[in-house]
Design a protein around this nucleic acid. Structure first.
Length: 432
RNA sequence: GGAGAGAUGGCCGAGUAGGCUGAAGGCGCUCGCCUGCUAAGCGAGUAGAUGGGUGAAUGCCUGUCUCGAGGGUUCAAAUCCCUCUCUCUCCGCCA
């Protein structure tokens, strides 16, 4: 969330930022509530000051054996007034905080203005699109033909937007996860975390999913547990309510998790294949930095994610999101889009964002620049490194052969027991 | 799930016959002194949030709140009562 004091001091700057995002938000109502809250606070604090002073006086009188009845009677009345006014203030404050949690982050000055994803700016492009001597097929056709992806049984066992990986497909999924984690922890200096897949509402609020996007998530009935939509939530909240030593920054974590998304409002979109599932795997990168370092760290984060695609040999482009396409909590976001030959389009496979102090303020994550310095909010960043299901789909489509088999990218072979090619594999039958 | 114990400042840890304890003491940290170097020693300082005032500013002055969370009793609660959460120990159950 934004700093209320900042909003109070620079209401026009905030208004302009919200306008650029195309976010319809009633800033005046928030400012009015803030004003009301401060006025009421001021009056009740005067009463409390009086109560504190007289209470001391009463203690002194009683000790000296003097008469305190008149003062006690007066305080009875004052305390009653305080109770009433505290109630009013609390009401105003709750409304104010609730509203504040719905204000999105202010876009970074370098973010291009735009209304929709068509206004995003491509910043680089890597890899030639592979030439096929045949019509490349989409991954769901390849996967089903090879019997490594099974959407029909996913539907039977769970429902729409669920699937099974089988045999070499399951192995490939696992290989990708391990390859990504090994790369980021081994060469990019991230510390691996394995995280809870269920988190509480406080965590969901910390990273910005709640309260505004409750409909996008799965909640466990009768429990304060949500299924994580991304490892960003548990990893960022890993350091919630902590004060970090400035010397330990930046802190970089890589975490695999399953991700669960309700995909409310996506009815009819991407109904085929692995692109939009209710459950998918992802390796997430999260950084905690000093405010002055977050711009540079975002660039490095994007490079770390791109490295995965380069090593796999998957063509991609990097896109800077415009103001209108920016996520709620983000100040600046780069998307990586991988080339999908079977569908003839670039498809988002990673999203790397700088949240500045927006999440840190919600989750109360601070640091001290020096041991005596006052604690200040860190900046948080995160990015997919990468979405595993979509990566698997991209591998199938980019490495498909004329005969319907799929070559295994060089870097994955050690993770696949040396397998060089995925062919249709019959169920193994063990005989006694 | 059953029984018991606990939750205090960056950390550890005092504080229950309610008032002068926002909080002893220690550790850590910062500054200064001392020291050939290191270690030790000496002195001072060191919670957070928020309102108001003031300043060009690092700030300074002042009020309020915070001893797991919420509620209650009282003129007054870290201290009494209720509810909840979490942690630890034992038992049960389980991967």
């Amino acid at each position: 969330m934004l700093d209320l004091k900042y909003i109070r001091k620079h209401p026009e700057a905030v208004r302009a930022a919200l306008e650029k995002r195309g976010a319809g938000f009633d800033l005046d109502r928030l400012l009015d509530l803030d004003d009301e809250w401060r006025r009421k606070l001021f009056t009740v604090e005067r009463l409390k000051n009086r109560r504190n002073a007289v209470s001391e006086e009463i203690a002194r009188l009683k000790k000296a054996g003097g008469p305190a009845e008149a003062l006690i009677a007066e305080m009875r009345d004052v305390s009653q007034q305080i109770r009433e006014r505290d109630g009013e203030i609390r009401q105003v404050d709750e409304n104010l905080q609730a509203l504040l949690l719905h204000v999105p982050n202010v876009p970074h000055p370098l973010v291009p203005f735009g209304r929709a994803d068509t206004d995003n700016k491509e910043v680089r492009r890597w890899g030639g699109r592979p030439e096929f001597g045949f019509e490349p097929r989409p991954h769901w056709e390849l996967g089903e033909a090879l019997e490594i992806l099974d959407f029909t049984r996913g539907g039977k066992v769970s429902g729409a937007r669920f699937s099974f990986c089988r045999g070499a497909g399951a192995r490939l999924e696992r290989a990708l996860i391990n390859f990504m984690l090994d790369l980021h922890t081994g060469r990019h200096g991230y510390t691996e975390l394995f995280v809870p897949f269920l988190v509480n509402a406080r965590s969901m609020t910390g990273t910005g999913q709640l309260p505004k996007f409750a409909a996008d998530m799965y909640k466990v009935e009768n429990e304060d547990y949500y299924l994580v939509p991304t490892a960003e939530v548990p990893v960022t909240n890993f350091l919630r309510d902590e004060i970090l030593d400035g010397d330990t920054l930046p802190r970089k974590y890589a975490a695999y998790s399953a991700c669960f998304r309700a995909e409310a409002g996506a009815a009819g979109r991407d109904t085929r294949g692995l692109i939009r599932q209710h459950q998918f795997n992802k390796v997430e990168l999260v950084k905690f930095t000093r405010p002055e370092d977050s711009d540079d760290e975002l660039e490095k984060l994007v490079r770390d994610a791109e490295e995965v695609l380069r090593l796999l040999g998957l063509p991609y482009r990097t896109v800077l999101l415009c103001t209108g396409d920016l996520g709620f909590s983000s100040s600046r976001t780069y998307d990586l889009e991988v080339w999908m030959p079977g569908q003839g389009l670039y498809r988002e496979i990673s999203s790397c964002s700088n949240f500045t102090d927006f999440q840190a303020r919600r989750a109360n994550i601070r640091y001290r620049a020096h041991p005596r310095a006052r604690a200040d909010f860190v900046h948080t960043l995160n990015g997919s490194g990468l979405a595993v299901g979509r990566t698997l789909a991209a591998v199938l489509e980019n490495f498909q052969q004329a005969n319907g088999t799929v070559a295994v990218p060089e870097v994955l072979r050690p993770y696949m027991g040396g397998m060089e090619r995925i062919t249709r594999e019959m169920e193994r039958i063990t005989r006694e």
